[in-house]
Computed example of a mutant assay.
Amino acid sequence: MYATSAEQRRYDQYEPAARDFWALLKPRVMSLVVFTGLVGLLLAPGEIHPVIAFTAILCIAVGAGASGCLNMWYDADIDAVMNRTCDRPIPAGRVSRESALHFGVALSVASVLLMGLAVNITAAVLLAVTIGFYIFVYTMWLKRRTPQNIVIGGAAGAFPPMIGWVAVTGNISLESLVLFGIIFMWTPPHFWALSLFACKDYEKVGVPMLPVVAGEAETRKQILIYTLLMVPITLAPWVMGFAGPVYGLTSAVLGTVFLGLALKLYFRKDIGTAKKLFFFSILYLFILFAVLGTEAFLGQTSGGLI
């Protein structure tokens, strides 16, 4: 896993810049994690001091960045071969694997310790589980062994709103599990849509993504199945009463569009539709949580859900 002497000479030609270490944190992924964590915090019943709330979100951000960094450390060998990842800091020779490992471990430990000391122990344990699940369960165990890597590994990305909720309440509730479920069920259709048009990249490095081992037809079928399962779960916050009618209407409309694209992909079998579904899925999750967060914020200031 560490650099050979030839690789080390290549690293020595560069002085790692702050932007290279920032890139190791996967900032685009981190921003979505922070956003969903913030929404979980806003939705949670009870009060939290603004400084503690900020600290909780900071810890979620640092923990997410640490996970991304350690993922790049472990996957540097396949990242160097895949077209969409070959310019990442480690395969491009701008940061050594050893530096990335030390950076990721330091951030992981710091984020969990700060969460435990400044927020609460339950939130710290959840954050530690999230980081450990992403690195040890998804990255090291599942990713290169099973086409169910995304399904099971998706749990890591679904924990942040639970962590935000627990930062306020100190305990896990049914509502926080629903927030977890939305992201957990969203992850397979989102990433399988990506894998349909990035299939050759995964195939040449031996990562058993679903289209590689089961074919495109089965992948389109599974995308449709998971979409059908996901849409009712996205309505649950409104049905359960911790989201308002604006969210209920938004989730119903967006869910219909998502399902329409999944059906179109199932029957039309073209890469263009897969790309549309992938990019829409990002917007879909962002809007759902944006409305959830906005309703919660306005509800706190006006005394009830809008």
Rank of each mutant, 00 (worst) to 15 (best):
G215S: 07
L259Y: 07
L179M: 04
L249S: 06
L177Q: 06
L235I: 08
V231N: 08
L261F: 08
V213L: 13
G241Q: 10
V205N: 08
P245N: 06
F191E: 01
S173P: 13
P245M: 09
I233Q: 02
G215Y: 10
V207P: 05
D201R: 10
G255M: 01
E218K: 15
H190D: 04
L259I: 06
S195R: 06
S195V: 02
M185F: 14
S173M: 15
L259D: 01
A252W: 05
G241H: 13
F184C: 14
G206T: 04
A214W: 14
F180M: 14
G181T: 09
L229Q: 11
F180R: 12
V239Q: 05
C199G: 12
F258W: 11
M209Y: 02
S173V: 12
P232K: 12
E175M: 03
F258Y: 13
M240V: 12
T234I: 05
A236E: 02
S176E: 01
A217W: 10
P232D: 01
L259K: 07
I183D: 08
T250E: 04
G215K: 09
V253S: 03
V213R: 11
V178Q: 02
T250C: 04
I183M: 13
L229N: 07
S195C: 14
K200M: 09
L228S: 08
S173H: 15
V178H: 04
W186H: 06
V207G: 11
F197R: 02
L179S: 00
Y226W: 13
L254N: 01
W192Y: 10
V246A: 02
L229C: 14
L259R: 07
V253A: 15
F191M: 09
L210W: 13
E175Y: 08
